[in-house]
Amino acid sequence: MTNNIATPVTSETHTNDLAFLARIDNDEKIEACDWMPPDYRKMLIRQVSQHAHSEIIGMQPERNWLTRAPSLQRKSILLAKIQDEAGHGLYLYSVTETLGADRKSLVDALLDGRAKYSSIFNYPALTWADMGAIGWLVDGAAIVNQVSLCKTSYAPYARAMIRICKEESFHQRQGFDILWTLVHGSDAQKAMAQDAVNRWWWPALMMLGPHDSNSQHSEKSMRWKIKRISNDETRRRFLTQTVPQLEALGLTAPDPDLNYDEEAQCYRHGDIDWDEFQRVIAGNGPCNKQRLQTARTARDNQSWVLEASAAYTQNQSKQTMH
């Protein structure tokens, strides 16, 4: 713990802090009603709400292909996946409410462009093969992160992650299945699969966050066991399980420096273009403006449903009173 002379802490807070850290060190889970340091609460609301926003915005690249999925079966699968993403967003917003956050304020912050969400969803889904690459690579990367979050110290978040991981496993498999089908099709279909992998490969590595040495919130988050595995370790795990799958597909990664480290028994990637990552995070990726505009339009166009529901409820209660 850092000693900040400018802001003296009361001895009571200090005792609470120490007791809290002891619980964390003991691998105890923190429940909504338990005492927690204000910064722990704040950090969780930030992380969980960003996670929720990512699920909600993440529906958009796939929605783009719903009407053009190549068969009724593929359409049903894509629809089921998008429905899961919406559900994941809602599980996570409900976790933020256990922390005392106001769901509407969080959603407003997203729609006003004040809140962050995963960089990955600011890239366009240009072809059908992108549905495969998103499911396999993007959900694959997300799963590695989410599996580690099943052990996060905040119990309501951990419970939501366990549920989410269970549902995610079909997402990754259907993505791989789309690519597997394409690579066993015509030359043009195989080329389409390779093109999608070329475009999603680097963004999928970037979405796991900056290198540990540059990660702003990591140290405190790891200390409190909100986050259990560092960004670089998550990336290493993702790469090591994904490269053999890439080879099974007969496709290649757009990384000439990708190599297997015999000693560490893992794959190593080449340099990541962090300027691109920063650009996308700052709101200047290929689709940032379009994503927020679509989300705002959806809110505006669908507000009548909420209004109608409220009006109906009011009428019903009037009728019961008479």
Binding site: F170, F176, Q245, A248
Partner: peptide, 19 residues
């Protein structure tokens, strides 16, 4: 008719792991 919501619906090709 919604078996596709479960991972087991998708066959995993021989030799492919961690899916």
């Amino acid at each position: 008719g919604k078996a596709y919501r479960y991972p087991a619906f998708y066959p995993v090709p021989k030799g492919v792991k961690n899916l």
